[in-house]
């Protein structure tokens, strides 16, 4: 792991005062897709930083290329986190985001994804996009792990660049899988519910 990533994750942890709870789920180096609600720019960084070191080096956050390639600083941060940048705008047929993700993880890496797409503007979670369903369908061996990120939107809300060091928490729940014959809509609703359920634990 490089120095920038270590420094960034330390700063992120200090700023977000983040506490991590693993509920019915243990840190593992097996291949996983962590899917979480999206509330702040810090989400990916803080979630990534709160994984144990051995897991962290094998986990890549998925981020939007149009945002993270805007300037040199963001590019640098994205590369030091080993982020997987995905094009949101021009999606080509045989280079679809899901294909790219599967290609990138091979049989080694795990991913952090935010299935809502953009960051939510309200407190409520948005609908999940279908990427998670296709990931689960094409690689049934991947554990799909729900993560609920709480209070981080108050640390760094949308459109702000100075963080306020409140306390936040991350809850990592038991993995789910795509059931046989489960429809896309049903699965996405179930996945969203799995994240939301962690809020009340």
């Amino acid at each position: 792991m490089n120095v920038t990533a270590a420094v960034l994750s330390l700063v992120a942890k200090l700023m977000s005062g983040c506490s991590v709870r693993w509920v019915d789920c243990q840190p593992e180096t097996c291949q996983r897709i962590y899917f979480a609600n999206h509330t702040s720019h810090l989400d990916a960084l803080v979630l990534w930083a709160s994984l144990p070191k051995q897991v962290r080096v094998l986990t890549r956050p998925v981020a939007a290329r149009d945002y993270w390639e805007q300037d040199a600083v963001r590019r640098y941060i994205a590369s030091s986190l080993n982020a997987l940048l995905i094009d949101r705008e021009n999606i080509k047929v045989h280079r679809s985001p899901v294909e790219l993700m599967l290609q990138a993880i091979g049989d080694k890496y795990s991913l952090i994804v935010f299935p809502e797409g953009g960051r939510g503007t309200t407190d409520d979670m948005g609908e999940f996009k279908s990427g998670l369903y296709y990931l689960g369908k094409k690689r049934p061996d991947l554990e799909l792990v729900p993560v609920f990120i709480d209070n981080l939107n108050r640390v760094l809300p949308r459109g702000e660049f100075l963080p306020v060091p409140l306390l936040s928490s991350i809850t990592i729940g038991p993995p789910i899988w795509l059931e046989t014959g489960e429809s896309k809509t049903d699965f996405l609703v179930r996945a969203r519910e799995a994240v939301r359920r962690l809020k009340d634990l």
């Binding site: 005062g17 506490s19 991590v20 709870r21 709480d150 209070n151 306390l167 936040s168 928490s169």
Partner: peptide, 12 residues
């Protein structure tokens, strides 16, 4: 509606 500020966010 919190009992202790310690339980406000787990682990602190």
């Amino acid at each position: 509606g919190v009992r202790d500020t310690g339980t406000l966010v787990q682990g602190h």
